[in-house]
Design a protein around this nucleic acid. Structure first.
Lengths: 212, 212
DNA sequence: GACCTTCTGTAGTAGTCGCTACGGAAAACC
DNA sequence: GGTTTTCCGTAGCGACTACTACAGAAGGTC
């Protein structure tokens, strides 16, 4: 199992001391810069030369540390989910009510999608939209993450039905898909230049559709 | 003014007879096929070789008839707006009430975004998301169209306020941005495989946010 | 028929793509 | 210090990109 991930990681996790010459750059900050570039331009439009320039390293160093372009992108997406994108599962699990959970997701999205100093919108939503046939699997990988997020919303709605917060005849699938769509629409709006307060108002309006 | 558009078009519009050898393919069907390919993969991920293959012509024929890749994309987008995308301004102008107009836009979008035999979702929304720095202007051009659509929605909402259909204190900007976001979210959902009936239910839910 | 204009197919341009072979540099172990 | 192991920079790989020079073919006008 662990054999499938890069040797690099295994060693770091097991805290073994590397034997030869240590690398001359910080792997985490390099990954962070790659993440930012992918976030701006998406998978295919981000070139290796652009990445090496932004990461401050040469191509061989990049390939030695991260494998190929696809692996680097996957690792960047994983990092994104653990950092910038972590607010969504957090809100869904921490809030006591389903309505509160969804509301918090949307309002935190309004802030996260427009946070200064980093690209606007969501990497998972806009990171691999325009893909050629040879990288269709990358596009599919992000789609799977989006579907998983929708299911997470759905699960929270279903649990709201179970506790009696929502009517028993609630169309949980439709409600989950609706809020997933609003979430994705907010990302597009943020990319197009919408401000945080505009997205807050948008989120507030979206909550008016909540079953009463 | 007219000098800025390709000579080709001028001649067609003026119904002059071309002098030399006529071209061996139908320009409209070739453009339609290019449009479909751009719709599937987006601007940058669609290559000239893919286009020539889909259009059934050779590169020199493509460049003679359409200029460069960017011009071809612009013309494809224009064609899209006049055909597949024309339902939006039509719904906004034809319906007597603002609510009816928005509702019709969303329901027709549910059908259009999932119509069989052609790519799902909206070309203007997903056609130029992942762009490198050298084609940032293409990305911006589609964004301008999206902004124009949002303004069209806003205008319809404002006219609804004027006629008394909507309360005078309605936040028209927020309402327009909300429905624009829902529209864009529906496109993403359609691209991810949502069915027409699912999008219909989504549209129905979105209308529950309408001010009462 | 000749002539003229335009289109079409081959073939190739310079440039960039993702990726890597190779030699030297640098740090840890003995 | 010597050896070993790894990393780094240069330089370049084949394949692809958008795009085009050129020659010949094909239809119109005379």
């Amino acid at each position: 199992m662990t054999g499938t991930q890069p040797l690099e990681r295994q060693r770091r996790q097991e805290k073994e001391k590397p034997k030869g010459r240590p690398r001359g750059f910080d792997r985490e900050t390099a990954l962070e810069r790659a993440l930012t570039l992918f976030w701006q331009h998406g998978y295919e439009a981000t070139s290796i030369s652009g990445l090496t320039k932004a990461m401050g390293i040469s191509p061989p160093s990049l390939y030695a540390a991260f494998g190929d372009k696809r692996s680097l992108f996957e690792e960047a997406v994983a990092r994104y989910q653990e950092s910038y994108g972590a607010f969504t599962p957090r809100a869904l699990t921490e809030e006591p009510t389903a309505r509160g959970a969804i509301e918090r997701v949307l309002h935190e999205a309004a802030a996260e999608f427009t946070a200064p100093g980093r690209p606007h919108g969501c990497l998972v939503i806009s990171g691999a939209v325009n893909c050629g046939p040879e990288s269709a699997d990358v596009e599919a990988a992000l789609r799977d993450i989006r579907e998983a997020s929708k299911h997470a919303i759905h699960d929270r709605v279903v649990s709201g039905v179970r506790t009696g917060e929502l009517p028993a005849d609630t169309d949980t699938e439709a409600l989950a898909q609706y809020y997933a769509a609003v979430f994705q629409g907010m990302s597009t709006q943020a990319r197009d230049g919408a401000s945080r307060s505009e997205l807050e108002a948008l989120a507030e309006l979206a909550m008016r559709a909540w079953p009463s």
